[in-house]
Design a protein around this nucleic acid. Sequence first.
DNA 1: CACAGCATCGAACGTTGTTCTATCGTAGCG
DNA 2: CGCTACGATAGAACAACGTTCGATGCTGTG
Lengths: 233, 233
Amino acid sequence: MARLQNRPGAGRRRVSHSMDSVLTEAVALLDEAGVPALTFRALAERLGGGVASIYWYVANKEELLDRATDHVIGAVLADVEKLPATGDPIDDLRAMAMTLFDAIVDRPWLGPYFMRNTNIQGNSLRMYERLGRETLRLDLDARQRFHAVSAVVGVVVGSAVDMGQEPPKEVLDGAVDREEFLGRYAQAWRELDPAEFPFVHEIVEEFDGHDDVDQFRSALELTLAGLRLQAGA
Amino acid sequence: MARLQNRPGAGRRRVSHSMDSVLTEAVALLDEAGVPALTFRALAERLGGGVASIYWYVANKEELLDRATDHVIGAVLADVEKLPATGDPIDDLRAMAMTLFDAIVDRPWLGPYFMRNTNIQGNSLRMYERLGRETLRLDLDARQRFHAVSAVVGVVVGSAVDMGQEPPKEVLDGAVDREEFLGRYAQAWRELDPAEFPFVHEIVEEFDGHDDVDQFRSALELTLAGLRLQAGA
DNA sequence: CACAGCATCGAACGTTGTTCTATCGTAGCG
DNA sequence: CGCTACGATAGAACAACGTTCGATGCTGTG
């Protein structure tokens, strides 16, 4: 029996891709089941082509993730630019941060990759610029402006990472919903010694069933209040 | 020739471990070269034993990372508890957050895993309690306290994640130092169109050679200022 | 029609987390 | 002293992954 070894490209119908189709399908996989679902094999199957072809468009998986991230940030940037200006830079900053956060709520996989490599992520850089431009209207020096934007981005990413950590996988399967997952945690907290954990007992009812968006908004509000104070506005 | 297949445990001298030795060596690997360096095979070799033995102590890699994280957070917690109380809860909160952040600066791999699973991470939970206890002395309601601690932890983790992202690997190899790595980024930014990126140009000199600790401290200060305002103190 | 080079592809490689099953070593017991 | 049960250890095998290799198809240009 003849060995058909090392005869690549024989038999199968060829398929032609494009950077855009690669990223679109990559994002689709990420949306469906997060980062673990984005494998070169799964992506190739979805594109109807071979695994190695993808390497013509991206050098490695890291670049694939960076480009996929920037791909969706492009749409978010468009949303941000459509936001009406209120005249108050801090109000505008809040609106932009909320828009950005909403996007990450929709796509929890975004969190860890957002703003990771502005060389590749051109839209992320534009987003950074857009946020920073608001600080130009505040009475701050360059360093304060730099730190202010870093702080706002930090709040967004910090909350996003906190949220984005996949619940062991029962939730992804749909076997257990988020509510129950949180509830189990809360129950474990309630059973702690109240003398040793007074604070945890104080807030456990707030934690149980809490809304991530509320949590984020509060954190953002604290930062913005501090910023307003700093700018004397 | 006799096949020596499927005769495990034959020949090699047996080694006995302990939860503590497993975690200590795991942390050593993480400290040396980050998360990618912590493989079950590398860890087994370091312990002088077999790969599968580690699975008697932890169910999987996730749990290994959670336990390793909590292992070092235990030491940080001890540092935090040694901190002198100033009488001002917000000043104490700042000191604790700084201590926590310093630990993450020393061990960048900590960032993404800190506070991930308080079921396993008992020390992280105690740290959370410790931070929260300061808010009990502020004039806030339970929800505000919950959000305040979340915000502070968010700032720490957000900055830590931002910092912890391994520079492509030239820096890890020591071929390029952090200074030059930042400088290259800054250079790329300087070459952008000033009309399109006025903010980036405004802050590029601040970015170049900036100190992560400064950046973190500023973000923390904004949050704490907002908190002080909220508590009316 | 030949050629160049862009784009695609199957197969193979090395590494990883994890599981399977066999084995060792000792504490308890008669 | 021997036997047994069980806590603990171990090598080999497996499936999945990212990545590389070299060959092959396709298409526009001369």
